[in-house]
Simulated assay, not measured.
Amino acid sequence: MSSSTSSSMNKYWIPHLDIHKKVITQELQYYLGPEATVRAFTRDGEDGFLITTPGPCLSDEQIDDICVKSKEMWERQAAARASGSSSRTLKRPLHAPVVISKAGSSDSSRRRNKDRRRNDPRREERR
C-alpha cells in the first residue's frame, strides 16, 4: 500500500465488547468492501478493533449484526466443547487403561489379605 493510499484511508476504533474477532474479520469486507481491514487494537487501555477503510465505518445495524453473529459463534463453540469433552476418543485406543483393581475395593482387599495370611512364613512356624 503506498503512502498516498494509506493517507486516504479512514481509521476507526470500536470496542471489542460482544464482538468475536473471527466474526468481524469474516464480515468486515462484506460490509465495507475489499479494501477494508481490521486488527486488534488497544486505545487508552481498552481493547478493541482498528478498522481501516476508504469510506465510512460500520453502521449501528451492521455492528448489531456482527454482535448477534458473535453470540451465535460463542454458543456453537461452547456446545462443541461440551459435547466434545465426553465423546473425545483417544488417539491411541489400544493403549486405553484397563482397570485391574481399584483402591478401597473391599472384595479385592479381602482376597489380598487372605492370600497374605496363607503365604505368611510365620504362620508355618506356628503349626
Rank of each mutant, 00 (worst) to 15 (best):
D64Q: 12
D65I: 00
L32M: 11
K11M: 08
N113Y: 09
G33A: 06
L17D: 14
V98M: 03
R117D: 08
A96M: 13
A103C: 04
Q26S: 01
V98D: 05
T42K: 15
D120G: 05
R112A: 07
N10V: 11
S2K: 12
S86T: 15
K102A: 09
A82G: 01
R88N: 00
W74Y: 12
S7V: 11
R118S: 14
P56L: 11
N10E: 06
E35N: 15
D64C: 07
T89W: 10
S70C: 07
S105L: 14
D65E: 08
S101T: 06
G84A: 06
R111M: 03
R118P: 00
S85F: 04
R92W: 07
I14R: 07
S106K: 12
P15H: 10
I66E: 05
F49Q: 02
T52I: 08
T42P: 05
S2C: 14
D47Y: 13
Y31S: 00
S101P: 01
H16R: 12
Y12E: 08
R123V: 05
C57H: 13
A103F: 15
T37Q: 03
F41V: 08
G48F: 03
K71N: 10
R88H: 07
G104C: 11
P93M: 10
E125D: 06
E72D: 11
L90Y: 15
H16D: 14
E46Y: 08
W74C: 09
V98P: 08
E72V: 08
A36W: 00
A79T: 04
F49E: 02
S2N: 14
Q29S: 07
E61R: 05
R112Q: 07
I63F: 01
P56G: 13
E61D: 09
T25N: 04
S101W: 06
P15N: 10
D44P: 06
A80K: 06
S106R: 11
K91I: 13
G104W: 04
K91T: 13
L90K: 08
R122T: 06
S70W: 04
P93D: 09
V38M: 03
A82R: 11
Y30D: 02
W74D: 13
S83L: 00
S105H: 09
T52C: 00
S59G: 05
R116M: 11
Q62E: 00
E46C: 15
S6H: 10
V38K: 01
I100G: 08
K71D: 03
I100R: 02
A36F: 02
E75F: 03
S108L: 12
S7T: 13
F41D: 12
R126M: 10
E61N: 04
P97H: 03
T25R: 02
L50N: 02
N10K: 14
R92C: 12
R112E: 01
T5M: 13
L58F: 02
V99L: 09
S87V: 14
S109K: 12
R118W: 09
L17T: 15
K102I: 11
S105P: 09
S83A: 04
S87P: 00
V23I: 15
C67G: 02
T89D: 04
Y30K: 04
R76C: 07
K114D: 02
I63P: 04
D18K: 07
M73W: 10
R126A: 13
